[in-house]
């Protein structure tokens, strides 16, 4: 069963079409990434799924439930981490987590809170006011607030934006642990390198789905593919991207051994995604 099923979803703000007839299916238990530049429609899409936004048209089902009509049943089963920390600076980390957690009936909420504070490595700062925390620590508290009621799906809106690389690695380790425990994670990012850390990715631009695939499939789009035609016979090889790899491969076909290195320019994942976006947008203009 798919955790999320979106059919023909659109959201219009005046003249702006924030979501443009979008279709999406997210299988259970994976880390699903939505990647796109600012204003692509990532947050709007997440808000539609958590029931904080009324779509102009289309259908959304999360765990088989309608986010607006069956919001009370759904809210027990989802966790939401907004783009801004959305925490109370004058409360401590533990007070924030307990407050949001108490919206649902949770057995032993204090024990659960201690466990997730330990899970996010915040135990030593649990009783400090959130206003004294760094951006990365606030993100972790925000994550705790989203997962305190043990949700089946976590919606994370740009969870790693504006934090340092070390904390980013830590957060991704946490996401992976959660996914391994069966939680479906749906997250948005504008950092293209994070695509590699997801199980499946949808590329979004101007509210439209441009491509949906696994990161591996997307990377393959950018591999260095060498094609040689010898005596009319075409031979294709996929090789590594160092100049030495290319030279040694060409030497097999007669390249002067004195040539030890042939440099080529390969695209990285960010360039590939940007290229996909530009290509599709040009196509749409025509």
């Amino acid at each position: 069963m798919n955790a999320i099923e979106i059919t023909n979803l659109s959201k219009q703000y005046g003249k702006i079409l924030a979501l443009d007839h979008m279709d999406l299916s997210v299988p259970e238990g994976m880390i699903y990434g939505i990647v796109g530049s600012n204003g692509a429609g990532k947050s709007t899409l997440i808000k539609a799924m958590v029931g904080s936004l009324r779509p102009t048209s289309g259908a959304t089902k999360v765990l088989g439930l309608d986010p607006l009509k069956e919001k009370w049943e759904l809210r027990k089963q989802i966790g939401y981490m907004p783009q801004s920390p959305a925490l109370y600076d004058d409360l401590t980390a533990i007070e924030n987590i307990l407050f949001f957690g108490k919206a649902q009936s949770i057995n032993n909420i204090e024990k659960v809170t201690d466990e997730i504070l330990s899970f996010t490595e915040l135990t030593t700062r649990a009783n400090d006011k959130v206003g004294t925390f760094s951006g990365g620590m606030k993100k972790r508290v925000s994550l705790c607030c989203a997962m305190v009621h043990n949700p089946k799906i976590l919606f994370l809106d740009e969870p790693t934006a504006a934090i340092d690389p070390h904390l980013k690695i830590l957060l991704w380790q946490l996401f992976r642990k959660l996914a391994q425990s069966g939680v479906t994670i749906f997250l948005s990012t504008h950092q293209m390198d994070e695509v590699l850390l997801c199980d499946k990715v949808t590329i979004l631009s101007n509210g439209k789905v441009l491509a949906t695939d696994t990161p591996q499939k997307l990377i393959e789009l950018g591999k260095t593919k060498l094609t040689l035609t010898i005596n009319g016979i075409e031979k294709s090889t996929t090789i590594g991207s160092t100049p030495q790899n290319l030279a040694s491969e060409l030497q097999k076909s007669g390249l002067d051994p004195l040539i030890s290195s042939v440099a080529i320019q390969t695209e990285n994942i960010e360039e590939i995604i940007l290229s996909i976006m530009n290509h599709r947008e040009e196509g749409n203009k025509r």
Partner: peptide
């Protein structure tokens, strides 16, 4: 403006 109202609603209040 801080997003806590939206968060409270989605959390189930």
């Amino acid at each position: 403006t801080r997003g806590t109202l939206e968060r409270m609603l989605i959390a189930g209040y």
